[in-house]
Design a protein around this nucleic acid. Structure first.
Lengths: 155, 155
DNA sequence: TATTGTTATACTCTATAACTATA
DNA sequence: TATAGTTATAGAGTATAACAATA
């Protein structure tokens, strides 16, 4: 049975992008699995982590800083509020504005989740030498800088 | 206004997992954008790429090799078939079995899409030195090997 | 009974666009 | 008219579980 001739093209595994994605996907999935027991998703964690550092923030500020749309922030915030991990309060000076913050429970949970993040990091990268680690971090940071990448991804 | 004390925890950007995900997400998104003009998604491309190398394959084989469920393969295959890029034919020896293959049009399209993948790769990684590139690829491959990662991600 | 594949359902993540209530 | 936020809708990506046909 004749078939259309196959033009030789590069092996997928010849691409750095392939390996990057392969490993990144697994690291993320493993982290998501660790978060599951706490009923928090990776995207929710990102939002919580940001609020932990800033105390409180307007949805539009969060959208900018996390590289998401305002609608996406609303949805994530809704879920965190439903779970009792965050609060939404109206701004007194501008009736259009809202402020998002962690609830006490949410704030208390962050160190625990951060420990899971550390554990995940260790599982995947602890065997690397200091030098390897430095090279990778530098190269990845360079790509972000050179390509002017915005938006913070989930992790 | 007193608030719950903030326990100091590691900066997100101290994690390799963070940078990996950051860059990987952008590389993938840029690739998805390139594929858009051809009306193919990244997951569809992965399937097409696999079929290009194997000529044809049963859904269950594809599921194993791409690390997806059979249901997911059915859905992806349905879309490719709707677009005229793949075909599904019953197996003559086992009436339960099906065989997926690229259509002539699908097969002809693969080199074009592969060129887009190359272009994407170049945009993000061309500035790396040979040594940097080798280090990263080796480290990522090692992680896959050491951690025994399965499943092929999209890209 | 085990296997192959499909279907039904659901959920996360994210976007776009329309809409509401101010400013 | 511009801005802040929400809501509605949609679609990719993926999973689980139930199911039909066949082995």
């Amino acid at each position: 049975m004749p078939r259309t001739p196959r033009q030789p093209i590069a092996d997928l595994t010849a691409h750095l992008g392939y390996w990057l994605r392969y490993v990144s996907n697994h690291v993320s999935k493993a982290f998501a699995h660790k978060l599951e027991a706490r009923e928090v998703t990776v995207a929710e964690w990102t939002l919580m982590r940001k609020l932990y550092d800033t105390d409180c923030l307007a949805p539009s500020r969060l959208a900018e800083q996390l590289g998401l749309t305002r609608g996406a922030i609303t949805k994530l915030a809704d879920r965190l509020i439903t779970k009792g991990l965050a609060t939404r309060t109206p701004d007194l000076r501008d009736a259009r504005a809202q402020t998002l913050a962690l609830s006490a429970r949410g704030r208390n949970l962050v160190p625990t989740l951060a420990a899971l993040a550390e554990q995940n990091e260790a599982e995947f990268f602890d065997h690397l030498s200091i030098k390897e680690r430095a090279t990778i971090e530098r190269v990845l940071r360079d790509i972000v800088r050179i390509r002017g990448l915005k938006s913070i991804p989930v992790e």
